[in-house]
Design a protein around this nucleic acid. Structure first.
Ligand code: FES
Ligand code: FES
Lengths: 142, 142
DNA sequence: TCACCTGTAACCATTGTAGTTACAATTACT
DNA sequence: AGTAATTGTAACTACAATGGTTACAGGTGA
């Protein structure tokens, strides 16, 4: 399966918050932009809020970045919206047979390889900051 | 969501085929080793067969490696058992609003980042060969 | 013929996801 | 105080992928 589109939506939201920082970014406004339901947006924003990436204003409405866009990288965003804990991008097979020569040690062997691959991916995400994304978006507009 | 455990099971199977190359590796035997149902094993072996990694003997029974273990790397195995086509590790959000300044260009921007991250992960998998896995397994046995 | 095995279809339970409706709690404005 | 707007959350639905299971047709060799 693919990694949840929450990640893509989260990046979308954060970029919008930066670009439209003058306006009041309600979940409904953002939903219109992302083309989905406001509740979906609020759910993602809730996760981003818990991770300390955005602030929200209950009652008054609207969300805003809690940090400068150059201080937010995509790995943080990924971690914020990803339900699976780190180190579980690859599913291990549950209960290998301990009586089998392969089963005895397969867990550790696979774990090393899987962790290495997962880290390589995450390092690429860590390299990219939100302001690079925004720059790229605005550049595309010209 | 995590990447399907089919990948872990596939590596498990291939390692077993190499280690137990003298014996007749029926789906039932392998299933006992992996600790799952024979049909699950046959399904995975079917995918590995289509990818040209193993040979099977319908009727007579048993499977064997179609190549030397040093000539099989984990990226090939990953591709063989992964249903999602390459380039879709990360799900894009479906239909961004073309009237939104973000939506106009978000697809291309995200695509670049996502592809880069996915490739980084795959490159790590490509570095590891089946015989390295087997070596590690056997070493753990001592 | 017979025993055994593969390949595959069919079905089921579980899980994660995204969308949707509904509503209490919060805040600003008048 | 009263009203309108908005967040945060719960609850429900629909859907897709997954892994396990049973069943069985067809191949293969003894
Ligand atoms: S436990 Fe997985 S093959 Fe032996
Ligand atoms: S925020 Fe996704 S289309 Fe505008």
């Amino acid at each position: 399966m693919s990694i949840s589109s929450r990640f893509a939506v989260a990046i979308h939201i954060l970029a919008l918050l930066d670009i439209n920082k003058e306006g009041r970014n309600t979940s409904e406004f953002i939903a219109g932009s992302v083309n989905t339901n406001p509740v979906v947006i609020r759910r993602v924003i809730g996760l981003l809020g818990k991770a300390g990436l955005v602030h929200t204003s209950p009652g008054v409405g609207g969300a805003s970045l809690a940090r400068q866009p150059q201080d937010i990288n995509l790995l943080e965003v990924y971690r914020a919206v990803q339900n699976d804990p780190p180190g579980e991008l690859f599913a291990a097979h549950d209960k290998p047979n301990p009586k089998c020569p392969v089963g005895q040690n397969i867990q550790g062997t696979l774990d090393t390889v899987f962790r290495r691959a997962e880290s390589a991916m995450e390092n690429e995400l860590a390299k990219v900051t939100l302001d690079q994304i925004v720059f790229d978006l605005v550049r595309g507009d010209r």
